[in-house]
Design a protein around this nucleic acid. Structure first.
Lengths: 136, 136
DNA sequence: GATTATCCTATTAAATCTATGGGGTAATTA
DNA sequence: TAATTACCCCATAGATTTAATAGGATAATC
C-alpha cells in the first residue's frame, strides 16, 4: 500500500507544478487545497527540498517552489525518496537490496521469481512517467 | 512491501506443488523446510484451505495438499487472498475499491493517474503467472 | 523590531503485522 | 475403544511502521 507520505508528496509536487510562475507557495495553502495535515506536509516538503526537488524561501512571501522542470522529474526518483524501495521484497530491490534470512537460494525461490517481474513492470511505469505527464 | 504472510503462503504453495504425488504434507515439515514459524504457517495454510486452494487431512499421515493443478492457480487470486488488494491505493482497486476522503475528483488526481498504470502493470504480471510458472 | 513562514526535534497515537500459547476436534492405527 | 497424530480455532501479546501533533528555533521580509 502506498503511504500517505508518498501520496501527499505527489499531490504537493503536482500542485506546485501547476503554478503558472515559480512563485513560492506557502505550506498552509497547499495543505488547505489538497486536504493534508499541515504539520505532516511540512515534514514531507522538507524532505523533498533536502533531496533536491524543491526550493524554499523564508519570511513573508515565502514558501516552496519547484526547482526543476516537471519534465525532468522522474517518478522513479520521487517514489524512492518518498516511499523507499520500489520492489515489494528487498531481495529484488535495485537500490535497497537485502538478502532474505529464510531463503537459502534466490535463484530457485518462487517468490523471488515472481517479484522480480512485478518490480520490472512497476519500474517501467515509473520510468515512463514524469511529473509533467501527471498534470497533462 | 509484501507481507510475510503472502511470502510464506507462496512458498508453501510452491512446496506442495513440487510434491510428486498429491500426498498430504504436514505443517511441521513445510515449516522446517522453508524456515517458517510453524504456528504462523498454520494460520496461513488454514486460510488457503478455506479459499479453495488446499485440502487437508487429519490424523496420522495427514497434512495439506494441493487441490488444483498448479497450472490452474493464477497469481492474481493467490495474491488477493493472501495480501489483499493488488492496487497500491484503494481508489484504483478493482476488487477492493474505496473512495479517498481527501480527493475531490479522481479524474484529475495525479496519484490516481499514476497508480492506475502501476496496478495495470502488476495485474498483467500476476495474470500471466500460474503456480506452475513459478516452479519451472 | 515586528511579523511571517520555514526549519527542526521529539513525542505520541493508531494501526498493522508477526508470532505465540493453549486447548479442541477429527481421523487413523493398533 | 484407547492412544496417537495432526489439523482446527481463538485469543492475545510483541514489534514495527505510519500518521499526526507539539513546541520552539531560525531566517527573511517589511
Amino acid at each position: 500500500m502506498l503511504s500517505k507520505k508518498t501520496k501527499y508528496g505527489l499531490k504537493a509536487l503536482t500542485f506546485l507544478a501547476l503554478q503558472k510562475d515559480r512563485e513560492p507557495v506557502q505550506i498552509a495553502e497547499i495543505a488547505k487545497q489538497e486536504n493534508i495535515s499541515q504539520k505532516f506536509l511540512e515534514s514531507i516538503l522538507l524532505s523533498l527540498r533536502k533531496t533536491g526537488f524543491l526550493g524554499s524561501k523564508k519570511g513573508k512571501g515565502g514558501g516552496y517552489y519547484l526547482i526543476k522542470d516537471p519534465e525532468e522529474i522522474q517518478m522513479t526518483s520521487v517514489i524512492r525518496v518518498l516511499e523507499g524501495p520500489i520492489a515489494l521484497v528487498p531481495c529484488v530491490s535495485l537500490n535497497f537490496y537485502e538478502k532474505c534470512d529464510d531463503c537459502p537460494d534466490e535463484r530457485v525461490c518462487s517468490v523471488h521469481k515472481l517479484m522480480l517481474q512485478v518490480r520490472d513492470s512497476a519500474l517501467e511505469v515509473y520510468r515512463s512517467n514524469t511529473l509533467a505527464d501527471l498534470i497533462s
